[in-house]
Amino acid sequence: MSDWIRVAALDDVPPGTLHGVKVERTAIVLANVDGDVYALRDRCSHADFPLHDGVLMGETLECVHHGAKFDVCSGKATGLPAIRPVQSYEVEVRDDDVFIRLG
């Protein structure tokens, strides 16, 4: 099991927003749904564009590039043109910092 890595301050990703970070050259997007933070691979499974450019509506992330939709909790694709899920990562918020585990 890989280690927990601090990737951002909680303030970097206020509720209802997305925030892109890089961990060991891997791009990750953080999503804050009403205080719960989720982490996905920052790469749309449709055409590989960064997801952090998109918008978060509830638990749904809509990719700005082609309109694909994902459930940020699971990474599951919920709207075309995406069909494949994006990888999701374990997240822990400790005090004011966000940690994830690449797994």
Binding site: R25, T26, A27, R43, D48, F49
Partner: peptide, 17 residues
């Protein structure tokens, strides 16, 4: 970047530092 046709499938951002 991947927006360039010739680099569409090799993401320099992730592969080269």
């Amino acid at each position: 970047t991947r927006r360039l046709e010739e680099w569409r499938y090799t993401d320099l951002g992730e592969k080269l530092d």
